[in-house]
Each structure stands twice: as C-alpha cells, then as structure tokens.
Simulated scan of single mutants.
Amino acid sequence: MARRREEPDLDRELADLPAELRWREWMRRVEAVLFASASPVPREDLARVVGQGASVDLLIEDLAADLEDRPYEVARVGAGWWLRTRPAYGPAIRAAADAGGQALNLAEFDLAVLAAIAVHQPIGREGLRDIFGKEIPRELIGRLAGRDLIGTGPREPRRGAPHTFVTTEAFLAAFGLESLHDLEEAEQQRDAGPAGG
C-alpha cells in the first residue's frame, strides 16, 4: 500500500527524547527541509515535521542563531523560509562553481521594467508606457513571466479590462527580499542619503 504525503512514517512528537534533544532534532529537521528545497518553504510545510506543541517561528529563530557563524543563513522570503548563501561568499561561489544558471542575467532595460512593476504594482502596459515613454515589448513581459518574476494581477478598471502585472514570490526570492516592504525601505534609505551626512 502506497503512503500518502499527508501521512509520512515520521515520529513528529519524539516523546521518548528529553525536551532539549527533541528541540534539537526538530531544528535539524527544519534545516534539512530548508536545505533540500529549491524554493521558500511555508510554515505549514515545516509544521509537518515537528511536534504539535512546537513553534515553527521559535525553531527558525534558534536555527538562525545556530547558523550564525556558517556561510549560509535562514532567510524569510514571502510566506516561507529557505537557506541562502550569505552575500559575502558570492564571489567565492562564482569563482569556483558553475552558478551561471542561477543568475538572473537580465538586460538593464529588463531590470528597469521589473523594478517599475515591483514599485508600482499592480500596473498595466499603459502605466509602463507612461513611465518609460514607449511601448514595452510583449517579448520582454513574456521573458519576465516565463522566469516567474511577474504574474498577472487584477484587471484594470477600464474598457477591455486588461490585466495588470505584479511581482511573484520568485521575484522576492531572486532578490533576497522577505516582502515588498523591504524594497520600499531600501528606496527610502537611498532617498535619505548617507547616514549622518
């Protein structure tokens, strides 16, 4: 008989372990799930590998502290978490590993359109044309959508009701953002200028 995904052969409660060892095992399970995942893992999925009384948020906090001196960290991305390499190790990875397939490799104009969508979302083709002073090629929108960086948002409240564009969780992950508020905070800091100046 095949096992269903909802009922894995996993002792979640670990009642036979002392509390400290139980907590450590739950942390390791969360770390293993994050390590194996290619995308952010939501709280509900992490809760499936720990006991009912365990707080996923506290486990994540303890795991983050445990990884403090490691070259990778736990990062909140959208509604989930994942492990990512700390930025300081980026040059070493690029020098030694074939990480080219993971890079965005977007042209400058593609990045500008993506940034406009992120800042002004939901925004339609007409809004993008107003920002850039020209029509945005459908191929460019297709490239961004094909890489799952943007998706369709609500329809515009006008004749024909065209779709708008919004960024996705993959966008947040690609830029290491927890939410779009991180983007707003970075923009405010840039506008404020150097600290103490």
Rank of each mutant, 00 (worst) to 15 (best):
M1I: 05
R3D: 00
E6L: 14
E7A: 03
P8I: 00
L10W: 02
D11C: 02
E13Q: 14
A15C: 01
A15E: 08
D16K: 11
D16P: 03
P18S: 05
A19C: 07
L21W: 09
L21E: 15
R22I: 05
R24I: 12
R24G: 06
R24V: 13
R24C: 11
R24D: 15
M27R: 12
M27Q: 14
V30F: 03
E31I: 07
A32E: 08
V33G: 11
P40A: 05
P42S: 14
R43N: 14
E44D: 10
E44K: 06
Q52S: 15
G53T: 02
G53Q: 02
G53F: 02
A54K: 07
D57Y: 07
L58V: 11
L59R: 00
I60L: 09
A64D: 08
A64H: 06
E68G: 12
D69P: 03
R70P: 05
E73T: 11
A79N: 15
G80K: 01
W82S: 12
L83G: 02
P87E: 15
P87Y: 09
Y89G: 04
Y89M: 08
G90N: 10
A92S: 10
I93M: 15
R94D: 09
A95F: 07
A95G: 11
A97N: 08
A99R: 02
A103M: 12
L104W: 13
N105C: 08
E108D: 06
D110P: 03
L114K: 02
V119M: 04
Q121C: 02
G124I: 04
R125F: 06
R125C: 05
R125G: 06
G127R: 00
D130E: 11
I131L: 08
I131T: 07
G133L: 01
G133S: 00
P137T: 05
L140K: 08
I141M: 07
G142L: 09
R143N: 12
L144K: 00
R147V: 01
D148C: 09
D148S: 14
I150Y: 11
I150V: 13
T152I: 14
R155K: 15
E156W: 05
P157I: 13
R158G: 09
P162V: 04
T164S: 13
T167W: 08
T167I: 13
T168H: 10
F171Y: 00
A174S: 13
L177A: 04
S179K: 04
L180E: 08
L180A: 03
D182C: 03
L183C: 07
E185L: 09
E185V: 11
A186R: 06
Q188M: 14
Q188S: 12
Q188T: 12
R190W: 05
R190A: 10
R190D: 03
D191T: 13
D191C: 13
A192L: 04
A192N: 02
G193R: 02
P194H: 01
P194T: 04
G197C: 05
G197T: 10
